[in-house]
Nucleic acid binder design. Structure first.
Length: 827
RNA sequence: GGGGGAGUGGCGGAACUGGUAGACGCAUGGGACUUAAAAUCCCAGACCCGUAAGGGUGUGAGGGUUCGAUUCCCUCCUUCCCCA
């Protein structure tokens, strides 16, 4: 019997066209089925679809297809995170319009995604660079402004000299720019911020309820938010009314304070030394320190440098006076920009105090009770009884912690306080290809928001891309406008928004991407949100996932949604590796997705990606492995085509079955159970695919044994074929669709119900039981799975080989695990 | 420096609740088919000793708990990620 070859090149485009034309994957809210929102992190359209993308989509699509067959009403959309630097750089170097460049890239990206045969509802596609989308960035900005969640202030900011723009704290990695790795500088600039710190506590607390997020992502977010409890303490200046406030997590050490250090940026520095003979020296020092990066300044291996201001303060708890210094290792961004020095109980303070000859005063003793500030060689950071601490002497420092705060509060010296590492989100970018911030500056009225009915503020086209400065400043038509308030001349804000704003609410927009009244239709969002399964790279563990959570809470507080957390379940996929290194252009080890599909077809590529590794782990690329997946699909294709006549008869149960047929049916039903469980509960596609391979092998053995006519067990074989096609359809949808038609079933395989297993057919009639003697496997025997402990014990002891082991020895212990093993201990 | 993963044949990986380590696949060796090759199909295989039956060793290293540990606990090594 000859059969047509498996030819993905013909078969895949054919089915893709058919799916599109029948609008097979369109989703609507009008359904009695339970909703499921499955989402992949949308890509930045660079034009190249790399293996990381492909892996992301192969996982998401398999899952979405599985859920549809399981009976859910699935929303599975795709869009493009289309603002950003590469488009603008192309404009500078090649003089192409960023909008055109981006549109072309999106088209290229989309065509590869279509070739993958992904089951997106393409009618919901969006691109964040479209005015219909970024309109809503501006709208949300205005609402945030009204509520005080957006504000402008001058602050020392991270400046990337190479990108020519400022960066948020989250976008600085190891002191470098997250995009180009250039060393980040500090600059004082007027910038727009979003007040994410207002939600710091909620963002932290709600992590606990995200049961289906990877623990490490939650840990990373917790560390990033960095909540710490402690106290804010006020220190009066000697000879002045001025007060310096510091935050500390160790109020129990206040009696050990021997100096105070200010950050070079601290606003009081200039005032403190004004007119004194130290003025010049201190200001010069501060100037030099500020020019260094935060990384250099806080490097713990490096010598700390400071300078005395000559001024002194009073420690309110004991009335003693100590010096105030300025030092480079204190940063203005953390706490209040002032740090109390307790050298006896903080190693950094200790090193600093020894270097500058500052006193070291022990207030917590260790177990020897012999700590002495003058002789100790390192700080004691442990716990113990308090000494030299007034009313607290003799008490344990940990236990007294709360009482210290009360003591401070009662005397008006300070208050309990909570500190966060999280800073407000700096959203201004001095770039063209982003969302214009909808604000106008008027000589008379000051900063005036653009009225809602004048949105969107569109990006102008009369701009020059020189590579220097913000291109928006070269556009007179954009720059010059009239004040919405007094109609006088006004000047538009030329900063654009951080593109992470675009990705902070796009998942709401998918629920109705054309909606014109608000960022999204509240009713539709109420139906679809939250996202039930989100899939993307671990690199977004902090940035995007934190911003998106913040926005969701912000939108909730605007009354647009009841949802407080956007993503119920999160899957972070592992990287794609080749030859032991991350697949990247710079490594030169990239395997282009398009080439893969050209050679083997989309189904093979998808099969290999899912089979080679579980989704969360790294995936080692192997060209030979791909070959293997292709061989498997070819084998399935031939097997089904050559045996399609078997489907004409009855399926299972309705004919006399011999033992071999019965065992094939068992294999079929156990495979259904295994594959379902692997996808649904374990999210482990590699083992699901292995299970299908095993069933294919089993079926092939069966058919070879029976010969082409298959007199007995036709039903069992037919059932296996049908099940294989169905189980395969989430992973290799084109081939499954083709084979489904081949075996005479109605279009489409994607609309079929996921096969169910018959529990009776998953129970085997016999299990192999292992007999261990002193922990070593010495024999095996077949037993009834229901056999009692007593029966198994007797059966094991009857085995001649086991008898030999027992001869001349004393049986010490015997353990029986029903259905599994008998373990015998002898001496 | 702090926090969190990971370490299993030649390779990717499996072993889900402490119960037969190495499923499935790749590569390899042997065989069938073929004039030949490709493709396909069948068989073999952790390592060591042994013709074999069988025995011993084995999940990064060392120790512990247990009748039994890839799985739990302690110490250490290597590596990756995050934060400094």
């Amino acid at each position: 019997m000859s059969s047509p070859r498996y030819s993905p090149r013909e078969l895949e485009p054919k089915w893709q066209a058919r799916w599109e034309e029948s609008r097979l994957y369109r989703s609507t809210e009008k359904s009695s089925r339970e909703k499921f929102y499955c989402l992949e992190m949308f890509p930045y359209p660079s034009g190249d679809l790399h293996m990381g993308h492909m892996r992301n989509y192969a996982i998401g699509d398999a899952y979405a297809r599985f859920l549809r067959m399981k009976g859910y009403n699935v929303l599975y959309p795709m869009g493009y995170d289309a603002f950003g630097l590469p488009a603008e750089n192309a404009a500078i170097t090649r003089k192409v319009d960023p909008a055109k460049w981006t549109r072309r890239s999106i088209e290229r990206m989309m065509s590869v995604q279509r070739r993958m045969g992904l089951s997106y509802d393409w009618e919901r596609t969006l691109a964040t660079c479209e005015p219909a989308y970024y309109h809503w960035n501006q709208w949300i900005f205005l609402k945030f402004l009204e509520r005080g969640l957006a504000y402008r202030r001058s602050a020392p900011v991270n400046w990337c000299p190479s990108c020519g723009t400022v960066l948020a704290n989250e976008q600085v990695e190891n002191g470098g720019c997250w995009r180009c790795s250039s060393q980040v500088e500090k600059k004082d600039l007027e910038q727009w911020f979003f007040k994410i710190t207002e939600y710091a506590d909620e963002l932290l607390k709600d992590l606990d309820a995200l049961e289906n997020w990877p623990e490490r992502v939650k840990t990373m977010q917790r560390n990033w938010i960095g909540r710490s409890e402690g106290a804010e303490i006020d220190f009066p200046l000697v000879g002045s009314d001025t007060i310096i406030s510091t935050f500390t997590t160790r109020p129990d050490t206040v009696f050990g304070i021997t100096y105070l250090v200010l950050a070079p940026e601290h606003p009081l520095v200039a005032q403190l030394v004004s007119g004194s003979e130290r003025e010049k020296a201190v200001l010069d020092f501060a100037d030099r320190a500020m020019r260094q990066s935060a990384i250099e300044r806080t490097d713990e291996t490096r010598d700390k440098v400071g300078i005395d201001t000559g001024r002194r303060f009073i420690n309110p708890v004991n009335g003693q006076q100590f010096p105030i210094l300025v030092a480079d290792y204190v940063l203005m961004e953390y706490g209040t920009g002032a740090v109390m020095g307790v050298p006896a109980h903080d190693q950094r303070d200790f090193e600093f105090a020894r270097k500058y000859g500052l006193p070291v005063r022990v207030v917590i003793q260790d177990e020897t009770g012999a700590l002495d500030g003058d002789t100790m060689v390192c700080a004691y950071e442990g716990d113990g009884p308090m000494v030299d601490s007034g009313p607290f002497n003799g008490r344990n420092n940990r236990e007294a912690m709360g009482h210290f705060v009360t003591h401070l509060e009662d005397n008006g010296w300070g208050r309990s306080a909570v500190g966060y590492r999280l800073r407000d989100w700096l959203i201004s970018r001095q770039r063209y290809w982003g969302t214009p911030i909808p604000v106008i500056y008027c000589g008379g009225c000051g900063t005036v928001p653009v009225p809602e009915d004048q949105l969107p503020v569109l990006l102008p086209h009369d701009v020059e891309f020189t590579g220097e400065g913000n291109p928006l400043e070269t556009s007179p038509s954009f720059l010059n406008t009239s004040c919405p308030s007094c109609s006088g001349p006004g000047r538009r804000e030329t900063d654009t928004m951080d593109t992470f704003i675009d990705s902070s609410h796009y998942f709401f927009r998918y629920t109705d991407p054309a909606y014109g009244k608000l960022p999204f239709d509240p009713d539709k969002a109420a139906y679809w949100m939250p996202v039930d399964q989100y899939i993307g790279g671990i690199e977004h563990a902090i940035l995007h996932l934190l911003y998106a959570r913040f926005f969701t809470k912000g939108l909730r507080d605007l009354g647009l949604t009841d949802v407080g957390e956007p993503f119920t379940r999160l899957l972070t996929q592992g990287m794609v590796i080749k030859d032991g290194a991350k697949m990247s252009k710079s490594m030169g080890n990239v395997v282009p997705a398009e080439d893969m599909m050209e050679r083997y077809g989309a189904d093979t590529a998808r099969m290999f990606i899912l089979f080679a590794s579980p989704p969360e782990k790294e995936l080692e690329w192997s060209d030979q492995g791909v070959e293997g997946s292709f061989r498997f699909l070819t084998r399935v294709h031939r097997l089904v085509v050559e045996n399609r006549h078997l489907l004409n008869g009855a399926i299972g149960g309705q004919e006399v079955e011999d033992e071999t047929a019965r065992s094939l049916r068992h294999a079929t039903h156990r495979t259904i159970r295994k594959v379902t469980d692997d996808i649904e509960r374990r999210f482990q596609f590699n083992t699901a695919i292995s299970a299908i391979m095993e069933l294919v092998n089993e079926l092939q053995r069966f058919l070879t044994e029976r010969g082409p006519e298959v007199t007995a067990g036709r039903g069992a074989a037919g059932e296996a074929i049908r099940v294989i096609v169905l189980l395969l359809s989430p992973f290799a949808p084109h081939l499954a669709e083709e084979l489904w038609e081949t075996i005479g079933q109605p279009y489409s395989v994607a609309l079929q119900e996921w096969p169910q297993y018959d529990p009776d057919l998953t129970v085997s009639s016999s299990v192999e039981v292992v007999v261990q003697v002193n922990g070593k496997v010495r024999a095996r025997f077949a037993a009834n799975p229901e056999a009692s402990e007593e029966e198994l014990k007797e059966a094991a002891l009857r085995i001649p080989r086991i008898k030999e082991y027992l001869e001349g020895s004393e049986l010490v212990k015997l353990v029986v695990v029903p259905g599994k093993l008998v373990s015998i201990v002898v001496r």
